[in-house]
């Protein structure tokens, strides 16, 4: 079959069609308005370099904002001269390093261990919640009955602050790891179900038909087109629910835990060790930033139009 040839041939397409103008900026609708601003559509590599440069500039500006915050903080601390009210950046940094591998309180655990404890809770609860939410969402998208059945349940659960469940979960599941995992799952699952349904619903009917007319089976279309097409939306849902999961776990650790960053912050607060409270907060921010960056990286992989 390799020799399948068009019947008529000869001449390049440009010679035959006079369509070269279509390569120039503005040569056709479609895409974002920014696309037509580039000088030379002919050079894909140059276009991508320009977008990468713009991205680097954006990141630079973002870093400048954080540095400015640190500077304001340092100036305020210097003026106030009250390390219990507001320790300086350098004091906080030293405290962070000091307690990073020393237990606090003395019978407790070091900062790195508390951070890992919180992270473990997040990853377990978040992982289960994402799988449960995407499964629910897929079932809701596939079946009208399932959707009408589950929709009200989610709409009732979704606006509830997960923290309201803490006393209930302590009664039901005790004070071990289980209530904390369940707390995160209860927060993540509805968000993931709602975003998955939305993402799957958004896949155009014609995109699936298109795949089918290209010879894809139903299963191949489901996996390689429908789910693949919904992936960016699902990843965006994961970013949203990850932020919620952090809020839940730290709050739970503040109220009812003997380990984790929330517990550390609570203990440090009780002894007016403000620098350590801030160290814990910064640690939460750093981990959340790294996790979100990871998800953002996946999102960029999944959706090329977001790159640059």
């Amino acid at each position: 079959m390799a020799g399948w040839q068009p019947l008529a041939s000869g001449g390049t397409i440009e010679e035959r069609l006079r369509i070269d103008d279509a390569f120039l900026p503005g040569g056709g609708e479609g895409g974002e308005p920014g696309l037509d601003e580039r000088a030379d559509r002919d050079d894909l590599a140059a276009y991508r370099r320009a977008r990468r440069r713009a991205r680097a500039r954006r990141l630079g500006t973002g870093a400048a904002g954080l540095i400015a915050l640190a500077v304001v903080w340092q100036i305020a601390a210097t003026i106030l001269r009250d390390p219990v009210f507001l320790p300086s950046v350098t004091q906080t940094f030293q405290t962070f390093l000091h307690y990073f591998d020393r237990p606090y309180p003395s019978q407790g655990s070091p900062l790195w261990y508390d951070a890992l404890t919180s992270l473990r809770r997040i990853l377990i609860g978040f992982g289960i919640g994402v799988v449960a939410g995407v499964t629910l969402g897929s079932a809701m998208s596939a079946s009208r009955v399932v959707r009408h059945l589950i929709d009200p349940v989610i709409e009732v659960l979704r606006p509830l602050p997960p923290l309201a469940f803490i006393p209930l979960f302590i009664i039901w599941f005790g004070i071990g790891e289980l209530p904390k995992d369940v707390l995160i799952i209860i927060g993540v699952t509805p968000i993931m179900a709602v975003t998955s349904v939305a993402a799957l619903d958004e896949v155009p009917e014609d995109l699936r038909l298109c795949a089918r007319t290209l010879g894809a089976s139903r299963l191949y279309t489901l996996l390689h087109v429908q789910l693949r097409s919904a992936l960016p939306g699902i990843l965006t849902g994961m970013r949203i629910s990850m932020a919620g999961a952090w809020t839940s776990i730290v709050a739970a650790e503040l109220i009812a835990a003997t380990s984790g960053l929330g517990y550390l912050i609570q203990q440090a607060g009780d002894y007016l060790n403000t620098a350590l409270v801030l160290s814990g907060i910064i640690c939460i921010a750093l981990i959340a930033l790294i996790l979100d960056a990871g998800l953002r990286g996946l999102l960029l992989l999944a959706d090329p139009s977001r790159r640059g």
Binding site: I19, G27, G31, E32, D36, L44, R48, S305
Partner: peptide
């Protein structure tokens, strides 16, 4: 790709193409 005049755009993503090219 050559026949439809997109030989330089094999590695481009759809959002990097003009409407006619798409």
């Amino acid at each position: 790709l050559g026949t439809v005049g997109l030989d330089k755009f094999g590695d481009a993503f759809p959002h990097e193409l003009s409407g006619g090219m798409q």
